[in-house]
Nucleic acid binder design. Sequence first.
RNA 1: GGCGUGGUACCCAAGUAGCAAGGGAGCGGUCUGCAAAACCGUUAUGCGUGGGUGCAAAUCCCACCCACGCCUCCA
Length: 468
Amino acid sequence: MKIHNTLTRKKEEFKPIKKDSVGLYTCGPTVYNYAHIGNLRTYVFEDILKRVLLYNGYNVKHIMNITDVGHLTSDEDEGEDKIDVAVQREQKTPQQIADFYTQAFKEDLSKLNILEPEIWCKATEHVSDMIKLIQKIEKNGYSYIGKNGNVYFDTSNFAGYGNLANLDFESLNTMARTEIDKDKKHPRDFVLWFSIKGSKFKGHILKWTSPWGEGWPGWHIECSAMSMKYLGEHFDIHCGGVDHIPIHHTNEIAQSESATGKKWVNYWLHGEFLLMKEGKMAKSAGNFVTLKTLIDENYDPSAFRYMCLNTHYRKKMNFAFEGLDSAQNTLSTLIENIRILQEKQEGETRQGKVEDYKKKFLEVINDDLNMPKALDVIWKLIRDEKNISNQDKYGMLLDFDKVLGLGLGGIEEKLQIPQEISDLIQKREEYRKKKDWKKADEARKELLDKGFILQDTSTGTILKKNNK
RNA sequence: GGCGUGGUACCCAAGUAGCAAGGGAGCGGUCUGCAAAACCGUUAUGCGUGGGUGCAAAUCCCACCCACGCCUCCA
């Protein structure tokens, strides 16, 4: 399979370090608030990557972190810790905040049919690993301590700093909007360990003792420490959002490789942003949409997933409710087709045709996860009247859904039918037999008022929940 | 100011040189007591604008216009 590597800005053939298994690290959430659908788009992309790897037969060891400390709103030791902000806002302990939003995050993933990582790791439970890593960096001469007591990473000492992002430091920061931390030797240096001693932010609740005094770890160090702990000092794939390329991932590489003295990650994959009409999604712009917002508007979370699949992960995706309506309609049609295929197992399959579709599907998903094309393949398959039996179509669609993750298997049993509703359906059937269309239609109308849609199809009468 | 991405039908969106995917919406039809669903047909001589290269351009080159992102924390 081919994937686009940010390191080289090219599509490359994927070659794992070990023959059949893949180490995958994906940057997880900072758990101080709900995830918005822009965040979730990235997790959907990473899920697709993981599913494609699995579909290709690899064992995937997937690690995702939970950032529950040390993530300041600015890197310059003048911002606020996001967890602390939530603590003030909600009058809870840091632990309660982190637990609550971690739970909410996991529920979102589950609703979007995103596979859970093999290992979840919390920053607060790995501070000692981070300290050990900082000590290695220190020993190798890549750090210094500022007057404020913070431990900084010395970027000028690390050859190739910024290669991931193609950064040009001569022209960088000419329009920097933040004040430069005076304790840094160079503006692009970053904090490995925040010391409480010289910090303007003495109120920080979470703190640990360290060789550099009391304090807390910088944000970037957690991903380096935890990924290496679980995947080794050299592993296959690291993912995140594009925004992480110039700062977070650039710094992670510098820290990790200066600690171990060797190459850290082979492939970097980055998911593009979801944009609203007003631009990037941000609370300050008042366009913060969560999965719950969508569910409250009666959208199926899978419709959002379908929408994500319909745009390639390296393209900016425009989110609008009209687009989500479109995805929701598409998904209904898709599910209806699956239902019909399941009930009408007929038709004949011409030799080799199943293999053709499977080959085509594999080819497009292995071409840098081209899911829009994969959807093209499944629609062509559904509408192929001549070559494939319903049974084979059904089987293939469920197989392809291992990658798409739209939950196409097991779609029926969801609906719970109250007694009153089934009585009404029964009554309508009797009217229909007597050809009393007026009363039958009244019954159908009554069902609609109670939130159920009744449809007479060629395979019998079916009941659906009315979502709109 | 620097760097980068993109502009394809009414909407979303593939396609990076060889006849413009797919989905939604609309319109026409088939089926059905009706409705709905489903299915079939249909909707870009055209790919932001203007030049250029080439047998051939949405695709490569140049210029311009527009939108967005990054250079602050960020998916």
